[in-house]
């Protein structure tokens, strides 16, 4: 009985320790960052290597990189997920091969993606240090997440729909478009949001693909600095950049929180209005 009580005590202690530590981290960034944030900080360009000014071009670059990554990865990921769930019940060699590749892809460290992106997109394809290179690199990185969530969503759709549709002589394509994809849509969107979060948080894969330039980008072929690289640069390479780095970290965390909240809100909304939302999609 003593052992049981001791274990309970220890487990509660661990939970409290973890909670307190993480609240400390968040509080540290909020307290130090909040005083630096103003409307100007969000709308101005950085000056003096980031010690002064704001982060407007950096937010734009981040948004562009993430947007490109998702726009490129989403269709590929969805297509792969559909192939794996709907057309490969028979464990074909091809499907097994694709799944194995995805397992490996999911475990590639982000710095290795950085090396690959630098060698392939920046140099081999001649895209240079650009937002496009960065977006393509991140697209490779988020693909496994998008595919895994979409596969889970599609697997969770009732098989009854597949059989009933088939029994009515409906092709698999029609069943997918009108029945299965709308039903799996919440999971697919949740995966997209997870992917956006992962892409926004990424640093190492971007240093040698999208580069460091903190000017407002003119096009996706320009180099652009992401928010995470900005934090890294300010804290490591710029003496006296810590306070602005705190602010940038706060902005990044708030953006991630907003994305998180959107995904939770969407999940709830869909649970409530599943049928109606399907009607709209069709």
């Amino acid at each position: 009985m003593l052992k049981n009580k001791l274990a309970t005590l220890l487990i509660y202690l661990v939970a409290v320790l973890i909670t307190v530590t993480f609240i400390c981290i968040l509080a540290d960034i909020i307290i130090h960052g909040f005083s630096q944030i103003s409307w100007g900080y969000l709308t101005e360009s950085p000056s003096d290597a980031g010690r002064a000014g704001g982060i407007a071009p950096i937010i734009v670059s981040t948004a562009l990189i993430v947007f490109l990554a998702i726009i490129i990865a989403a269709p590929l990921g969805l297509a792969t997920a559909i192939l794996l769930t709907e057309f490969a019940q028979q464990k074909t060699i091809f499907a097994g091969f694709v799944e194995r590749c995805l397992d490996v892809l999911a475990s590639v460290p982000s710095i290795v993606f950085g090396l690959f992106g630098n060698a392939f997109f920046s140099l081999y394809l001649g895209l240079g240090f650009s937002i496009l290179s960065g977006g393509l690199t991140l697209a490779c990185m988020v693909l496994p997440i998008l595919i895994r969530t979409a596969v889970e969503g599609l697997r969770a759709t009732p098989d009854d729909y597949r059989f009933s549709a088939a029994a009515l002589g409906i092709t698999r394509t029609t069943a997918l478009v009108h029945l299965l994809l709308p039903t799996a849509m919440p999971a697919i969107v949740a995966g997209l949001i997870l992917g956006i979060g992962r892409a926004m948080a990424e640093t190492a894969a971007l240093i040698f693909t999208s580069g460091y330039v903190d000017r407002m980008p003119d096009s996706v072929f320009d180099s652009g600095r992401s928010l995470s690289i900005h934090i890294y640069d300010l804290s490591m390479n710029v003496a006296g950049g810590d306070s602005k780095a705190h602010a940038a970290a706060l902005v990044l965390i708030v953006m991630l929180l907003i994305i998180n909240a959107i995904s939770m809100g969407l999940a709830k909304h869909w649970q409530k209005n599943r049928i109606i939302s399907n009607e709209i999609i069709i």
């Binding site: 297509a79 192939l83 794996l84 694709v98 995805l102 290795v112 993606f113 090396l115 693909l143 595919i147």
Partner: peptide, 24 residues
Amino acid sequence: HLVVGLRLCALLVASIVLLVFLFL
């Protein structure tokens, strides 16, 4: 037709891993 398109996409996805190793 759909399966052919899907296969191409999946092949592209799978080839990313091979490309990563190839370029390393």
